Computed example of a mutant assay.
Amino acid sequence: MPARQTTAAAARAAVVAAANATKGLEAALRGAADDIPDGKPDGRKQRWQQHKEERRAELVDGTLTAVRALGADIGMDEIASHIGVSKTVLYRYFTDKNDLNTAAMVRFIEVTLLPRLTEALIDDVDEFTMTRAVISIYVQTIADETQIYTFVTSSKFSSPTVLADSEKLIAQVVAFAMNERLSHRGLDTAGFETWAYALVGGVQLATHWWMVERTLSQEQLIDHLTMLVWTSFVGIAEVGGSAAVFNSREHPLPEFGVAPSTTAT
């Protein structure tokens, strides 16, 4: 199968896996209170559950619109007013602001961040171009959605478990694409999940730090992150992905003091 078809097939599978994981995450976060008991399914309850899911999604989309318009410190009264419903309606579908915040995070990842990242991961480009594109899209999306990002990661309302699970969704997509790319080149991919989770976690934490501190430009952040991730890929490729080969080698640092020339001779 041609490389492009292989990558596209892998990406489609990754999209399905990510979508399923997102749905599973949201259900788990709501708890088991809405679960259908064992035995014969209750048709009316199933219909109500579907209606509830659809209504929740509408209210979450409205919340994201309200946050974009009014800022990350928006309260439940302001959210309800901007959507055009009473606060009582919000509390009918969300137990509190934590619940709404969690649903907003999942929705943002599902409909905004993951589709953009996946599109970059399935593009028929070389590995370096793809690496920089994925990092650029992640940073740009977060930078473009400053109010949303602040709202869903607020220390007052966010849950460490939810944040970890949301990061897991992104890492799973990256891991799948990485495994396909490396295995297609004949590398040992035993460590692909470790690599994906470490790299995604590093990029996310660095971007979070940058969103708070802003001590360098967005382009500089992308440059530094690309350098970190790409040199990791190169190091993995040099040993064929094998930890045994890596451990059998010496690991001297290159000579310091003179920066390599950036101009062609």
Rank of each mutant, 00 (worst) to 15 (best):
W210A: 15
T141C: 02
V200H: 05
G186Y: 03
I170G: 00
L205V: 13
F192I: 14
W210G: 12
I142E: 01
T161Q: 07
T207D: 00
V203A: 03
S155K: 06
V152F: 00
Q147R: 08
V173I: 11
F157G: 05
G191I: 09
S183E: 05
Q172E: 07
S154I: 05
A164T: 04
V162T: 05
Y149D: 07
T189V: 15
F192Y: 15
T141M: 01
T141W: 07
Q147W: 00
H184L: 15
P160G: 01
H184W: 14
E145Q: 09
L182K: 06
Q140D: 07
I170V: 00
H184P: 11
A190L: 13
I142V: 08
W210F: 11
S154N: 10
G191P: 13
F176D: 15
W210C: 10
T150I: 10
E180G: 08
M178K: 10
Y149G: 10
S155H: 05
A198F: 03
E167C: 09
H208D: 14
G202Y: 00
N179Y: 05
T207K: 02
L205E: 10
P160H: 01
Q147F: 03
G201P: 00
H184R: 15
A196R: 11
L187N: 12
G191S: 12
T153F: 04
F157P: 05
Y149H: 09
D165E: 14
S155E: 08
S159L: 00
F151I: 04
D188M: 00
A206Y: 11
A177K: 02
L169A: 01
T150M: 15
L199M: 15
S155R: 08
A175S: 07
A143P: 11
Q204K: 13
I170S: 00
H208R: 12
L163Q: 09
S154E: 06
T153N: 08
A164Y: 04
F151H: 07
F176N: 14
T189W: 10
V162H: 00
Q204H: 15
S154P: 04
G202D: 03
D188H: 03
T194I: 12
T194E: 15
W209G: 12
V139A: 09
Y138I: 01
R185I: 06
V152T: 04
I142S: 05
I170P: 01
T194Q: 13
R185K: 11
I148M: 10
V203D: 00
S154L: 02
A206K: 14
V200I: 04
S166L: 09
W210S: 11
G191C: 14
E145H: 13
V139E: 08
A171D: 02
E180I: 07
Q172W: 04
T189S: 15
V152C: 02
I170N: 01
M178C: 12
V200K: 08
A164I: 02
F157I: 01
S183C: 03
I170Y: 04
T141E: 02
V173N: 10
G201W: 03
M178G: 08
V152A: 01
V173C: 11
L199T: 15
L182M: 11
D144N: 09
Q172D: 05
S166K: 08
E193C: 08
S158P: 11
Q204M: 15
A171F: 02
K156T: 15
A175F: 05
S154M: 04
Y138T: 03
I148E: 11
L199K: 13
K156Q: 15
A164N: 06
S158F: 05
L199E: 14
A164F: 03
